[in-house]
Each structure stands twice: as C-alpha cells, then as structure tokens.
Nucleic acid binder design. Structure first.
Length: 104
DNA sequence: TAGATGACTCACA
DNA sequence: ATGTGAGCCATCT
C-alpha cells in the first residue's frame, strides 16, 4: 500500500488557515490531477487523526458539506465551521468568501 | 486478482 | 434547477 498522496493530503489540511475552507477539487488540483477528488474523499474518510486534521474544512466543489461526515455528523461539522467565523447556510458555504487556494 | 463502493467533479439534457 | 451518465482514484469485499 505505498500511498504517497495520502500523507500529503493530511499535511495540506494543516495548511488551511483558520476561517477558510477548501474543496476536494482544490486538493486534487494541487496534486495536478482533478480526478483525484474522489480519492480525497476516500482518504479523508480514513482519516487517521480527525482530532488533528481539520477534515471538516474540506467541502464539495459547490461548497456543500459532506453528507456522510463521520465525526458526529454534518451538524457537528457545521458547528466547527461556524466556530471559525464561517457562515454556513443550508449546510453550504460561500466559497467566494471562504474558498482557499493552495499555492503551488 | 478482480469487482463493487464511495466524504467527488464535470458535462449535458 | 434537477437528473443522468461518464471518468478517475483509493479502499473494501
């Protein structure tokens, strides 16, 4: 199972500044492969340390929150996001404001 | 090893 | 706006 990107994904999560969020596509784009968005979801699902990696800062391309969030549910995620001054409306986030782009 | 599943995204109707 | 189909990757069975 020599997976290289996995650790990198987690490392990227730590790079997300407080009050900002990223999309699966952004992370995948960071790896130069947009299609990897799916793998990102799988990887985050297998998040080894959810307490350390702010996986709740990762949302879909439309700013919608994950429906199968495993850390207390989607409502828990919304709480965490609001805790960082991120306005969550109808389980969605305004990427125009909170969308963060990784520097290559 | 191969087939199915999923925390995705995009394009089209 | 809502629904369907296709594509890619990591993990599971």
């Amino acid at each position: 199972m020599a997976n290289l990107n996995k650790k990198k994904v987690y490392d990227l999560l730590l790079e997300i500044p407080q009050g900002y969020v990223v999309t699966y596509g952004d992370i995948a784009s960071y790896f130069g492969n947009k299609k990897m968005a799916r793998a990102i979801g799988t990887i985050l699902h297998h998040n080894p340390d959810p307490n350390k990696y702010p996986c709740y800062k990762v949302v879909s391309a439309k700013g919608k929150l994950s429906k199968s969030f495993a850390f207390g549910g989607i409502q828990r995620q919304r709480e965490l996001l609001e805790n960082e001054n991120i306005k969550v409306i109808d389980n969605k986030i305004d990427l125009k404001i909170y969308g963060f782009k990784f520097k290559k």
